[in-house]
């Protein structure tokens, strides 16, 4: 968990030029997402929702762990 955080931040930073290039007429980003009738947009939306819910469940999990630890003490 500890090593995951910097890795995540690092990947975000590495992706910035990718996002910035979106200013052009048809960037890499648009090429990717416009392929096959904008289906990748749907895919990313579904993935974001799934990931978001998983992250929230992980947070709840952490709270339950803490409570469990306190109760068993």
């Amino acid at each position: 968990m500890k090593t995951f955080k910097p890795l995540f931040l690092f990947s975000i930073v590495m992706m910035t030029p990718f996002f910035l290039s979106a200013q052009g007429a048809k960037s890499v980003l648009e090429e990717t997402f416009f392929s096959s009738g904008k289906m990748p947009v749907v895919l990313s939306v579904v993935l974001i929702i799934l990931l978001g819910l998983v992250i929230y469940i992980a947070l709840l999990n952490k709270k339950v762990n803490k409570l469990e630890k306190d109760i068993n003490k």
Partner: peptide, 11 residues
């Protein structure tokens, strides 16, 4: 919108 109309069921 094309295929992304399917987002209607998610977003």
């Amino acid at each position: 919108i094309y295929e992304s109309i399917r987002n209607l069921m998610f977003h």
